[in-house]
Nucleic acid binder design. Sequence first.
DNA 1: CGAGATTAACTTGTGCACGAGGTACTTGTG
DNA 2: CACAAGTACCTCGTGCACAAGTTAATCTCG
Lengths: 158, 158
Amino acid sequence: MPSTHTVEDETQEETFTRLDDFLCFVLYSAHRAVTNAYRPLLDEIGLTYPQYLVLVALYENGPSSVKGLGAKLHLDYGTLTPLLKRLETNGLVQRRRRADDERSVQVSLTEEGTALRRRARTLIPAMGAAMGLTTQEEDQIKMLLRRLTGNLTEGPGA
Amino acid sequence: MPSTHTVEDETQEETFTRLDDFLCFVLYSAHRAVTNAYRPLLDEIGLTYPQYLVLVALYENGPSSVKGLGAKLHLDYGTLTPLLKRLETNGLVQRRRRADDERSVQVSLTEEGTALRRRARTLIPAMGAAMGLTTQEEDQIKMLLRRLTGNLTEGPGA
DNA sequence: CGAGATTAACTTGTGCACGAGGTACTTGTG
DNA sequence: CACAAGTACCTCGTGCACAAGTTAATCTCG
């Protein structure tokens, strides 16, 4: 009940979806709840959430270009470059220009970075438990959200 | 297949969940896909995504304290105070100290802010269409994500 | 009433996330 | 080979998002 409404505009009153029913808001809230839940665990190993994802991606795919990481994580250079520099400063990754293409920067995990990613193995089950959903429910969310993301980024599966 | 693996550590190889199967990553990707899809639409009316949510909340609940907005949106003062100042600079909200409690700041929509929120009424159906999910699927996501958020913020429904 | 606790809001600092603009290297074409 | 186009990356500016520390008003209760 918008308190600023006066009697005049009752012509099309209350056709407004409630904020709590916005899918985008539910998604936004859930995302922040999840990253906030990860935070204390990641603080212990000195990582932020996006940094953690970068280590996971590098562990999974091996040495990658910045472009490749961006494609995997859907992030651009403006986000990745400073993030990777911080990881390098902390000794977790190495950044090197490729000899065969001086434009490209090859990012690879150091031993310390590899060890840290392995140490973070416990995070997923810990978070899974805290979320309190069944495996089927998690799978259902993942399936629907992947379709949503796909539709929004590649255009509807036309 | 982590390329940095050597033969020694095959003891517990491949117990690592793939990044694309992280629920948190799926959620993070979907959230960013949605806000990126909103961006061009919001640019037209000169709002950012969180600013849009604040206008929606104010329209729905009427004049609110900063604390009240924070509770509704799960945001803290460090985020809201500068955001509200920008909205005030743009003439969309008014900020006023309450007479009966000088600690509290009452935030209310201006006429321009009210008009803008009404103008943004078309965003929800437009985005809903772009997401390409059925109403049932959207309801399912909302239901599951609300439970997830609840479990993570209030602790499991113990 | 008055000292201490509480509360509402603000400020500062760090780190994403993204757009726009810039640089250096490589490729394609005449 | 030269030069235009394209590519990979970096930088800068804006705006969240959050933690930690600060200020000022209000409440508590002795």
